[in-house]
Computed example of a mutant assay.
Amino acid sequence: MRLLHTSDWHLGRSFHGVGMLDAQRGFVDQLVARVEELSVDIVLIAGDVYDRALPGVDVVGLLDDALVRLTGAGARVVLTSGNHDSAIRLGFASRLMERGGVHLRTRLAELDTPLMIPLGDQPEDDRSPALAIYGIPWLEPRLVADHFGVETASHFEVTRAATDRIRADLASRSTSRNVHSVVLAHTFASGGISSDSERDLSIGGVGAVPLDLFAGFSYTALGHLHGRQALSPEVRYSGSPLAYSFSEAQHQKGGWLIDVDESGVTSVEPVHWEAPRKLAVLRGTITELLESDHHAWAEDAYCQVTLTDAQRPAQAMERLRARFPDTLVLGFDPEGAPPSAKVSYSSRLAEAEDDLSVCCGFLEHVRGREPDDAERSVLAEALETVRLQGVSL
């Protein structure tokens, strides 16, 4: 039995204002190709299928297309809801979809109802080896604490209650047969490395849950963190298939390929997704960035640029985009800036000698660069026009 662990598709998300639906279609193409190439039996999607609770029509259409193509390639799909999804909407028609090989686990009542799959060549019966796949939907502590009967609405307590229910069901199925287990969960587990593109889960309780809550399961397929990582041999994040923040510029996107037989999990290997565009995080003076051959590789990348000029260059974004057309984020961190650049605006205002100094000081404060002679002249002319019209400043 071969499984492919994915999560955090975030269909419909944009990247600093750039739509990503075409890039997400490209990921689906890669996913279907790998399913066929590697003879994957089951695709796991551990939450955050959509980026928002009310996805657009074209976004829903992309998920529909993905599920049709994956099942058409011979794989079943097990899908849980994440904190970005609407569990009710995502779980619509789940019983009907199960007939087509798509198994949705978005309801609390179904988290301890596994998909049972026979293992080995023996005839299927109640004594043959099997794999049980459980899906824990996203658990918002404040909303589910009463359902689980826990006194404290925390991520730890509700996740412990959920995994306890799964263990109880697993124990009942293991009395007469050898049953291995895979659990999908969308949560922040202790030891995970986060990125800038993930939504904080700490509202409503302590965010991280300890790894020992997943002890005893053959494999735990986690979602939420966008970097692929192994917290232990049995507990892993697949990460998002695409980069959704510049903090992920160094990520190698992919998933995990898991092989299971009668003895349990026999191997876990990484699977890679090709990125549609490179990400570049650039830092330096505007002259160095525009002239150095060292940055030629970033000319066709999405760029985040931090300028270190002592004074903010004029028309910085326009000049940068002449070389790096897809500069999406521009920041300033002046090195060697004059002491005046660190003076608060209120202090600058208190020290102003006249109206022109107030205007020039404001301009310098908001853009990080002193006005030049031409700009000072324009400001002086405007102030004189106001004075002659008898307007009190």
Rank of each mutant, 00 (worst) to 15 (best):
T152H: 10
V32D: 11
H251P: 06
V281D: 09
T163Q: 07
V268Q: 04
E364S: 12
D51Y: 04
F148L: 12
A316C: 05
H180S: 11
A109Q: 14
V281F: 15
G72T: 08
L328F: 01
T306N: 13
G216N: 09
A275I: 00
G91S: 07
H10E: 03
R369E: 09
F332H: 13
G135E: 06
N83S: 10
S344D: 14
R160E: 15
S197Q: 01
D164E: 14
H224W: 03
R107T: 08
I193W: 06
G361Q: 08
R13Y: 06
G135N: 08
L96P: 03
A374T: 02
D293A: 15
L104F: 15
L79Y: 13
D326P: 01
H84V: 03
P339C: 08
V43Y: 10
Y302D: 11
T113V: 15
L4Y: 01
E151L: 15
M20W: 00
R34K: 11
G56T: 09
V271A: 09
G227V: 04
I203V: 15
R95V: 13
C303R: 01
H186Y: 01
H226D: 07
R99A: 15
A230E: 07
S340Y: 07
S190T: 15
H84L: 07
L211R: 13
E234P: 03
P141R: 04
V343T: 14
L21R: 07
D309T: 11
I45Q: 10
P270T: 10
G255M: 03
D261I: 10
T306I: 12
D125K: 10
L231K: 00
L242K: 13
R319N: 06
A87G: 10
D41I: 05
D326V: 04
S181C: 01
E98G: 15
D309R: 11
S392T: 12
L104K: 14
D41S: 14
D48R: 05
A185V: 08
F188Q: 01
V329M: 08
H10K: 06
V391H: 13
R52Q: 13
V206I: 07
L349F: 12
L393S: 14
